[in-house]
């Protein structure tokens, strides 16, 4: 054959993959579990976005309330006859400004709780000085230190033997012990040593063991 016939390539690809069959029941279980986590995270993000929106409105409202005194006296604006304003209205305005600050404090507290909830999506913590880790996405997240990078993934315990085998994981990948039906792999990125992966892997702390 002097040329690569596209039809023949298609046939060859189908032949090559004919015997490849995934474990469909495991795929269903893993995808459902990961998909449920994505749904939960979306709900958390939506709640955070709502809080941020409400906070922005509250800040804008309080700024408008706080600036009303100066705009009345500013150039180009006709000064409103203060004497015509009922006295109690002035006090009501001050009260609204105060409750706006209270509302902001409450929202800030709620956001902190929601951020904590988002962190809880990961079943473990990594706290190694010098490394900065992203928020979890799906069942994985990355950590960086300068130009070094690590890729952390939590996986069902059933697949751990594969990662321990010679062809199971990339060179230098740290494989944790099993905890609660899952384990963690820490894969070093380009320019990152196996020692760095092992160092970070050794500090994994399961969140359900946090005091």
């Amino acid at each position: 054959m002097n040329d690569l016939d596209p039809d023949r390539l298609g046939t060859a690809l189908h032949d090559r993959l004919r015997d490849e069959r995934p474990d469909l029941e495991r795929l269903v279980a893993d995808a459902t579990r990961s998909g449920t986590r994505i749904r939960r995270r979306r709900a958390t993000v939506a709640a955070l976005a709502t809080c941020a929106g409400v906070a922005a409105v509250a800040i804008a409202g309080s700024q408008l309330a706080g600036s009303s005194g100066t705009t009345n006296g500013g150039p180009g604006f006709a000064e409103r006859p203060r004497t015509a304003e009922p006295t109690d209205r002035t006090f009501t305005g001050t009260g609204e400004s105060g409750s706006g600050l209270d509302e902001l404090a409450r929202l800030a507290s709620e956001q902190a709780e929601l951020r904590e909830a988002a962190r809880d999506l990961a079943p473990f913590d990594v706290t190694v000085p010098g490394w900065t880790c992203d928020e979890p996405a799906d069942e994985k997240f990355g950590c960086t230190r300068g130009t070094e990078s690590l890729h952390l993934v939590w996986r069902p315990a059933a697949s751990r033997p594969k990662y321990l085998g010679p062809d199971g994981s990339g060179p230098g990948t740290y494989v944790s012990d099993v905890h609660g039906g899952i384990f963690v792999t820490v894969e070093p990125g380009a320019g990152t040593s196996a020692e760095a992966a092992a160092e970070v892997g050794a500090t994994l702390a399961w969140t359900d063991e946090r005091s």
């Binding site: 893993d30 995808a31 459902t32 998909g35 994505i38």
Partner: peptide, 9 residues
């Protein structure tokens, strides 16, 4: 698995 997780979500 990632693909089906996104689809399930």
């Amino acid at each position: 698995q990632t693909t089906y997780a996104k689809v399930f979500a």
